[in-house]
Write a protein that binds this DNA or RNA. Structure first.
Lengths: 144, 144
DNA sequence: CAACTGATGCGAATGATTCACAATCAGGTC
DNA sequence: GACCTGATTGTGAATCATTCGCATCAGTTG
């Protein structure tokens, strides 16, 4: 029951919000665009307006429930907040992996401090060739 | 004379391209949007179409002369390629500083390798409060 | 300096995202 | 459990950055 999560965030527990949250939870490991969320809801017989999805995702972001990314192409991808982690993206197949490295986090804090900044967040994305057998094949267009 | 830079990149040395390159060089330390470049050219009596600026900036990017960033807001900012470096952005005044840390670069390579990736590039942005006296005041809108 | 090919400028087209506003719903109240 | 009030939604139009299409023009080559 995620009604409580919404309440905690100061948001009314409306049906669209619950359904959107549900989609995000069912795709914890992915990075979804607003459009993706929209389509997954349609597949689920839930006809929620795109504008609502954008609105709700922004509210979730403000509430800290969701993280918004702008990888290469500039258009927004969302994922549930699941603690600090960074991304590794294959430039050939588009696969996105996540990783966490404490030492790196620490060094980032140190570098920020050295420049007089009080670090509040960061974005680190590593791009490379994943070198797996089924890379190219899997030229991730979509997963409809 | 940067005509040679363009030739090397396989691009004809046309007036628009030379002028755009000039603007970038005069603003080495900044991060300009296509619109910014457009306006700076207008200020200089150079009336070059916005579409051309977008086209040329993309060509420069392909040629490795320019780097395209998508910081928070998702819209594109460009800067001259000046060797590897990362960014520190003040969340209050918007100031962008650059830094370089060899050890961090190394650790990134190691982490990518650990996941089987052959690292080709990366993006690291640290967000924080710059804590300088004239921070807020200087609420960087533009510098027209 | 003529010819060939790529480059430009313009305005229209696109795609993601946001807005405006009337209709509807959630949550507290009696 | 019906009511009230302000928050939320759906719709379609609006906006913003960016790209396209195409006729015209300019660099380069010989």
């Amino acid at each position: 029951m995620q009604t409580s999560d919404l309440r905690k965030a100061g948001l009314k527990a409306t049906l669209p919000r619950l359904k959107i949250l549900e989609v995000l939870q069912q795709n914890k490991q992915d990075h979804l665009s607003a459009e993706d969320v929209y389509r997954k809801l349609l597949d689920n017989e839930e006809d929620i307006g795109l504008a609502t999805i954008y609105r709700v995702l922004s509210q979730f972001e403000d509430a800290g429930l969701v993280i918004r990314h702008h990888f290469e192409d500039g258009h927004a991808l969302f994922e549930l907040e699941q603690g600090p982690h960074d991304h590794l993206i294959c430039v050939k197949c588009g696969k996105i992996e996540e990783f966490f490295d404490n030492e790196m986090q620490q060094r980032q804090r140190d570098l920020a401090n050295k420049s007089g900044f009080d670090l509040s967040k960061h974005t680190l994305v590593l791009y490379g060739d994943c070198q797996t057998a089924n890379c190219e094949n899997d030229t991730k267009k979509d997963s409809s």
